[in-house]
């Protein structure tokens, strides 16, 4: 699973001026940890790029790989699945299940030619507001470099 490698300074501007397109990142969050972490980024007024759209489920274990594939088919440029840190899952071990499925998904995506950085899994606790904001920033920048999603179905209009 990919984690953010470096910690850019919080003073970075939200958008890279040399961008040629504006990626759309779909973020799956779980009610107890990562959604709360995203909220904390808000209450802390941490600024990050406006490229992410969040969907909330009760547990990261709810995330069917089909949702990720559908997102790519519909034109999402990147998909980020987030949940509680291992051992912290509100439902005991839902996140372990999410990770297991995600690893299989990544293998399948690799065979399809989907780039490594387009689909990621990360653990965010309810106290990690800054980590959430940096993660969205990092993902947005990386996906921007990769370019628009080449896998979207032809009848979906692009942004």
């Amino acid at each position: 699973m990919s984690e953010i490698q470096s910690i850019p300074s919080a003073g970075d501007t939200a958008r890279d001026e040399s961008a040629s397109f504006d990626p759309r990142i779909l973020v799956f969050t779980c009610n107890w940890c990562s959604y709360a972490g995203a909220d904390l980024a808000g209450t802390s007024r941490l600024q990050y790029p406006a490229n992410a759209r969040i969907i909330r489920t009760m547990c990261s274990g709810r995330i069917d790989p089909a949702f990720v594939l559908e997102a790519l088919r519909d034109g999402a440029d990147g998909v980020l699945v987030t949940g509680c840190h291992p051992g912290d899952c509100h439902y005991v071990k839902g996140n372990f299940r999410a990770e297991k499925r995600f690893n299989f998904l990544k293998m399948a995506l690799k065979q399809l030619g989907v780039e490594e950085d387009r689909v990621r899994l990360a653990w965010i606790s309810a106290g990690e507001g800054e980590k959430f904001s940096l993660l969205v920033r990092d993902m947005t920048n990386k996906v921007r470099e990769l370019g628009p999603n080449p896998f979207k179905a032809p009848n979906i209009k692009s942004t």
Partner: peptide, 9 residues
């Protein structure tokens, strides 16, 4: 090693 405020909130 639970995040304290996360389980308290």
């Amino acid at each position: 090693m639970d995040c304290s405020i996360c389980i308290l909130a």
